[in-house]
């Protein structure tokens, strides 16, 4: 009995110095993103051009920034990230975020 224990201990010690690594298949399911965009001018343009890549959560959690900053962000999405945004929709997208942020500041409680 004692011998077996010693042999087992040696085997375990051997494993410790170079443990086998076993890679198995893995999969997860991510939760849905059911957040809704609040109503506002240009909502449709935002839904059509922005939500394929962006959770509403990210867009709506940004700090209040001037209109020019929203314009530059939309330009960056188009030029750098190659987002297929309809050029005609840019002013509406910017209108929407400026209006929603103004509402957030006016009504920080949300209700």
């Amino acid at each position: 009995m004692k011998h077996w224990a010693i042999i087992l201990a040696v085997l375990l010690a051997g494993c410790d110095s170079r443990p086998d690594v076993v890679f198995v298949n893995a999969a997860i399911t991510l939760p849905d993103d059911p957040a809704e965009l609040p109503p506002g001018p240009g909502l449709q343009a935002v839904v059509e051009n922005c939500t394929a890549c962006h959770s509403p959560s990210t867009m709506l959690q940004q700090p209040q920034v001037p209109r020019a900053k929203w314009e530059s962000m939309v330009s960056k999405m188009i030029e750098t990230y190659k987002a297929p945004v309809d050029e005609q929709a840019i002013p509406e997208i910017v209108d929407y975020f400026v209006a929603v942020q103004a509402a957030q500041v006016a009504n920080p409680g949300g209700a």
Binding site: E36, P38, P56, M59, L60, A103, Q104, G110, A111
Partner: peptide
């Protein structure tokens, strides 16, 4: 919950309510 009941003007309360 109150924000949700009020119609959810803002994103964060809506997220909380739904997710």
């Amino acid at each position: 919950l109150l924000a949700g009941a009020g119609g959810g003007v803002l994103a964060a309360p809506v997220l909380a309510q739904r997710l």
